[in-house]
Design a protein around this nucleic acid. Structure first.
Lengths: 180, 180
DNA sequence: CTCAAGTTTCAATAAATAATGAAATTAATG
DNA sequence: CATTAATTTCATTATTTATTGAAACTTGAG
């Protein structure tokens, strides 16, 4: 199976973006490829489509699975494993977001908490702790919010997403109500 | 000037996280160092504190400036350039967020728009376009939201941040009002 | 204009990361 | 249980990315 020019361009772009999104070029390509391909693909098909080694595909699959972005499927009477995206685009975006939070925010939060437990022993440390405190609070707010978004029902999310510029108005509205 | 153990640990951690946050180890360290240091620092002081070459610092500064994370200051009668964070923690987080959006989302959005303008010429392309359409819509929503957040007043932001788990309730409330 | 302090650049080098492919492993089939 | 299709592993190699430091450049002061 060969990709059309347009689809190939998309897959290559996913590769370029791959490293920015948290994985590497090849894995970005694999992810893009599986997303735009209707039928599940075997590891060999992936290797062919992207002109990369079979071993590389195997490693990429492992990585994509650790991000919970792809799933394995079997076809009766066929020994091969078939790979497909593990959910909707929205699901996948959520996974990436979650995973990145885990890798980019959580470790820092943990370090900051430890650091802030011990009292500062001089002025330099005192100032540093003030700054760390701000970072800590910010990251904690982000964390709280992201878990909050996970908790919303799909309808609520829909509603929130469509809100757009309305968010300001809703906030003002809420404030008014609360003041009474 | 030497860093205390705790401050050193923080700076090193910023280094480890650096690559995840979009820049490299050294630049992460520089950023962390400038954040926890009360006084602006010269390039040489930075090089000393981190045990890296003067040239490396120069390149790091350029990069941090391109992210609009640091600013230059001058001390009268002193020829050297002094560097300091370009704003509050919140400002810096915003800059990183904005810059990452520019690097991670905007290029993809642009590619998808181009691709979706041309009609699909076969079934594979048709399916691919459906998927790309979903990605496009998702990214556009994210974009709209982030620019929306930028537009909110600091008080509204404060209010929104504190809302946390209340967001669901406010949404339900808003829906009820609108239905009437 | 000249000097010197300070900064930037960039070719060379070092370090980190990714990809290959052959060998080892696993697992379905008869 | 032997065969073989399929997958995984991992030492080696290739590629990419980061760092150094000397030379070039810039700029303020005399």
């Amino acid at each position: 199976m060969t990709l059309s020019d347009k689809n190939f361009a998309f897959v290559m772009h996913c590769g370029e973006m791959g490293s920015r999104w948290g994985f590497n070029r090849t894995i970005g390509q694999m992810c893009g490829l599986l997303i735009i391909t209707k039928e599940p693909m075997t590891a060999n098909e992936i290797a062919d489509a992207l002109s990369i080694s079979r071993g590389n595909v195997s490693m990429g699959i492992k990585e994509l699975q650790s991000w919970r972005l792809i799933k394995v499927q079997h076809i009766p009477g066929d020994r091969k494993e078939y790979y497909a995206p593990a959910g909707s685009i929205w699901d996948m975006a959520n996974r990436v977001f979650e995973e990145r939070k885990k890798r980019e925010i959580d470790p820092t939060l943990s370090l900051l908490r430890d650091n802030l437990l011990e009292p500062a022993t001089n002025d330099d440390e005192k100032f540093a702790q003030q700054q760390m405190h701000e970072i800590h609070d910010l990251l904690e707010t982000v964390t709280k919010w992201s878990s909050e978004l996970q908790r919303l029902s799909p309808e609520q999310l829909q509603s929130l997403m469509k809100l757009g510029s309305g968010i300001g108005k809703v906030l003002d509205f809420k404030d008014k109500i609360l003041k009474k």
